[in-house]
């Protein structure tokens, strides 16, 4: 008992000790894009000068993520998809949901149904504006995943099955990987190398948004899939 208490106090102290420098650090963060920031004084000067022109995006970070370092980002998308594959392989996909004894509260049911479409629109907004504002595919994907998890609390199994069959879930989760691979291959004819983006700004923007949409939809479906797989594994 005493040891447990001591352990708790130690945990609290450690968390506080971690939180204080983190908060201090956050306040000290240089303003994004500020020229005097340490991250911006060396290599990134070149990025800042020519990034917007070469990256094909008004937002430098998005340009770097989706163009200069597209291969890295492709790797990240693959990692997320593989994570779901691994969890699904271990935990199963929980598609045969059985009867749940307690119906959800009518208040929660109504509010989630009301808010759901608005969350989806906000997620799409974050995804589509990823090339202008900070944010983009991954953040929008988190929102989409949160929406799917919320909806799963109140929707009955048949409606879910009618909306998205088990087979199309897999394609949805692979969207990020597929879109990325497609854009990468399209770079060959359009720019002459893998992941190349064409010079035409309009086409370039469309491709960037397509990448963001792929990351967002794929990421959201994978997140929700992870939740469902773990939730399904819990009920033995």
């Amino acid at each position: 008992m005493n040891r447990r208490r001591a352990g708790r106090i130690l945990t609290a102290v450690l968390i506080a000790a971690l939180a204080v420098p983190l908060m201090y650090g956050m306040v000290q963060l240089p303003a994004p894009g500020h020229a005097d920031a340490p991250a911006h004084t060396n290599v990134s000067a070149g990025y800042i000068e020519r990034g917007a022109e070469l990256g094909g995006s008004e937002n430098l970070v998005t340009g770097v993520l989706l163009n200069f370092r597209a291969l890295d980002t492709f790797g990240e998308v693959l990692v997320i998809f593989t994570a779901w594959l691994a969890v699904a392989a271990v935990a199963g996909t929980a598609s045969n949901a059985e009867r749940d004894p307690v119906p959800p509260s009518p208040v929660v049911d109504y509010v989630i149904r009301l808010l759901g479409p608005f969350i989806a629109i906000f997620a799409l907004f974050v995804i589509v504006n990823g090339h202008v504002l900070p944010g983009g595919g991954f953040q929008g994907g988190v929102l989409l995943g949160a929406m799917l998890i919320l909806l799963s609390l109140v929707m009955d199994a048949e409606t879910v099955a009618r909306a998205v069959s088990a087979r199309s879930w897999i394609w949805l989760r692979a969207t990020g990987v597929l879109v990325f691979a497609m854009v990468a291959v399209m770079g060959l004819p359009l720019a002459g190398y893998l992941f190349g983006l064409p010079d035409e700004p309009g086409l370039r923007q469309v491709l960037t948004v397509a990448l963001e949409l792929g990351i967002g939809i794929g990421g959201g479906a994978v997140l929700a899939g992870l939740f469902f797989a773990i939730a399904g594994a819990d009920r033995s």
């Binding site: 949901a97 119906p103 929102l143 799963s152 609390l153 009955d156 939730a231 819990d234 009920r235």
Partner: peptide, 26 residues
């Protein structure tokens, strides 16, 4: 705000049914 709302609802549901669920069936 949206994520915090999600967390509270899911945690409440976990408490209520004793397990998490992909979908609810009437």
């Amino acid at each position: 705000g949206l994520l915090s709302f999600t967390v509270t609802l899911v945690a409440g549901r976990l408490l209520e049914t004793g397990r998490l669920k992909g979908a609810w069936k009437q």
